[in-house]
């Protein structure tokens, strides 16, 4: 009975997956194109939402620089469960064209493992949409997000908080 009840939640969620309106790299331009009239991701229920508190998934739009990594993890940490990670672009996999740059994080999947990854530099909106539909399936089946069990993001976040204890005291911050 309970499973059926929860399945209903999964079904409902999969029809309105909201993304945190947060872009860290250039691939966000193709996300923008997805929002546009030609690809129109809203017909599948996708919507960007400014607050991580109301979001279902976060998009790693390509490049993650060293400076932005803690921000990404903090944003992810503030999301309510279930929280999925969707990564696009070569940079989000191994640094892509910036593989030898010291200010770019080249192992994002080890830190925050994505549930769906779309390759390309940048991937076309069609490819991203395909990945997003895959994402919908995952949400509907109520699979656990990979980042909940794997990834080193919790340790990194903890280190950042130790460096800056005032941040940990902020009321909006759960540190889960």
């Amino acid at each position: 009975m309970l499973t059926k009840f929860l399945d209903f939640f999964g079904w409902a969620r999969s029809h309105s997956p909201w993304m945190v309106h947060y872009c860290s790299g250039c691939c966000s331009l193709e996300i923008l194109a997805l929002m546009g009239p030609r690809f129109d991701w809203e017909r599948y229920g996708f919507l960007p939402v400014p607050s991580p508190r109301q979001a279902d998934f976060i998009v790693i739009t390509g490049l993650i620089s060293r400076k932005v990594l803690p921000v990404l993890l903090m944003t992810y940490d503030q999301m309510p469960r279930p929280r999925y990670v969707f990564a696009i672009g070569a940079c989000a996999f191994d640094g892509g064209p910036y593989y030898d740059s010291t200010s770019v994080v080249t192992n994002v999947p080890e830190i925050l493992p994505p549930d769906v990854f779309v390759a390309g530099c940048p991937p076309t909106p069609e490819a991203i949409l395909d990945g997003l539909l895959e994402m919908k399936k995952i949400i509907r089946e109520r699979r656990e997000a990979r980042a909940e069990k794997e990834g080193t993001w919790r340790e990194i976040l903890k280190k950042e908080l130790e460096k800056n204890p005032l941040l940990a005291k902020q009321p909006f911050f759960v540190g889960g």
């Binding site: 945190v20 309106h21 947060y22 960007p48 400014p50 991580p52 060293r66 400076k67 932005v68 990594l69 803690p70 921000v71 944003t75 080193t152 340790e155 990194i156 280190k159 950042e160 460096k163 800056n164 005032l166 941040l167 902020q170």
Partner: peptide, 27 residues
Amino acid sequence: YKGAQIITEPVGKEGDLMILNWGVQHP
């Protein structure tokens, strides 16, 4: 992981003024 620079100054007050971080995660 060796660490990175983040929002090192917390939001809060400075005298009568309020300090606000506009960004990084802002639409």
